[in-house]
Amino acid sequence: MTASFDWATFERELTDALEAAIRSALLAHRDEQFYAAALGGIYREERGVISRPSLGMNSVEALNQHPLEEQPDVRWSMFDWDHLDDDWLAEAQRWEEALTAEACRERTSHWESTFQRYLMMLVRVCREVRTRLRTSGVVGPEFLVLVIDDEHHELLVRHVLTPSEVGRHFPELDVRAAEVARVAALPESERAAYFVSRLGSFSGPIDSEAAEEALRLLGQAAAPGLVARLGVEGQAWQAAKLLGEIGLADNSVTQALDTALTRLGGADQAWTARALAFLGRLDLVVDKIGRLPDDVVVTAICAPYTSFRVAPLPLNYRPLEEALERWPEAIADELKPGRGYCEISADEAAEATRGLTSRYDVVRRHAALCLEALQEQDR
């Protein structure tokens, strides 16, 4: 598909098909009181396929079949609903292929903008269908038509519903917004301490994932709280990972990581070793060969070449090639295809090109795939 992708026709067909599918379900289940329909389950791969959404519908009767304590979670969990329809859109495969081709015809930024345009189109579709159904008297004002997506949940809910409807049906979003505003007004050091306290939390207005992102943005201000967390067994791994991703390579951070390295165990120890590698202090890990498990040393050596490489040092295969003399099988397993390789910049292409002539298969394969990905980015 070229730049002539027909967005207008796509939106019109989606709107008409969604209205028809909801009307049909309501007619087929007249004895149920439906409270929502939703488009969701949109599978996508960056620079790859973008799927059509599934259609879900749920009724008060179906919701009441679940234990009372489960109902708040089930209410907006589309794949726990009674009525799911993957075939509501005619010629779905043709539209998926056309949309994917449109998204993939240029660089990653075009794929991202195309996907965002797709989401906003689905928002308009849902709003239009809800208006049609209400205007014709098929449903009442409380019946919702939503776009549900885990990654963009709040954004889509706020675009589909009015502010008063958000407060009534998704009150947790307003609670979260108030908490975000409160924390944003705190001094930087207090903000950092707050976000560190939220690490590992999967409930409340700000969860662990949001806290991680906030700490990355805070940078240096996050260091004291993260360093202190290195002393908490079972939680140190997350602090080490963030310190490595942020790229805080000052002495206080590297000394704290070095001290924690031999004191910790399991995932805490492994991520502390990786963090030191991310910060250019692999020497502190290598110095402890014999005192650390071999797998911890190997995972640190390999870390700068994996997809976890967030704040990278320039690509350099020399340490990897030296380590392959000692741990060829373990490193080959750690960097086998499918594990996820780092992305390189144009400035690193020369080292990757040198890697193509390495005596080691692992390095040659890694270099070839990194260069291939770099070429894809430039298309």
Rank of each mutant, 00 (worst) to 15 (best):
A181K: 06
F195C: 02
L161C: 09
H169C: 04
L173Y: 03
G167Q: 09
R191L: 08
F170S: 00
V180A: 05
E165Q: 15
F202H: 14
V180K: 06
Y194C: 05
E172D: 11
G200T: 11
E190T: 08
L155M: 12
A193P: 00
S164P: 00
E154A: 12
R182M: 08
L173A: 05
F195M: 02
G200N: 10
P171K: 11
H153P: 00
V180H: 01
L161S: 03
P171H: 06
V180I: 12
L186A: 05
L161N: 04
G204F: 14
G200C: 11
V183L: 07
H153M: 12
E179F: 04
L156P: 00
E190D: 13
A177C: 05
A181Y: 01
R168H: 13
V183N: 02
V180Q: 08
A192I: 03
R182V: 06
P187A: 10
A193K: 09
A184V: 06
R176W: 05
S189F: 13
R158T: 06
E188Q: 12
A181R: 08
P163K: 08
E154D: 15
H169L: 06
R198L: 11
A192C: 04
E188H: 02
A181D: 05
V183S: 02
L199H: 07
A192F: 04
E188K: 11
R191M: 09
L173T: 02
A177K: 08
A192S: 07
T162G: 01
S189R: 15
R176C: 03
E188I: 14
E151M: 14
R191F: 06
L156H: 03
L186R: 09
P171L: 13
A177Y: 04
L186W: 14
V183P: 00
P187N: 08
F202E: 14
S189I: 15
R158M: 07
E188W: 06
S203K: 10
E172L: 02
S201D: 10
S189M: 13
E190M: 11
L186M: 15
G200Q: 10
L199T: 07
P187W: 11
L186G: 02
E179K: 03
F202I: 14
T162S: 13
V160F: 01
L199S: 04
E188S: 09
S201F: 08
G200R: 09
S164E: 15
E172P: 00
V157I: 15
D174P: 00
F202V: 13
P171G: 07
L161G: 04
A185T: 04
H159Q: 14
P163C: 10
R168Y: 09
A193S: 14
L173V: 05
S201K: 13
V157Y: 02
L155G: 00
S203M: 10
R168L: 14
V166S: 02
S189Y: 11
R176E: 14
H153W: 12
V175Y: 01
A177S: 07
T162E: 11
S201W: 13
A184I: 08
L186I: 12
E179C: 03
P187T: 13
H159D: 10
H153Y: 15
S203H: 11
V183Y: 03
H153F: 15
H153S: 09
H159T: 11
L173K: 01
F170Y: 11
S197M: 12
F170Q: 01
S189N: 13
H153D: 10
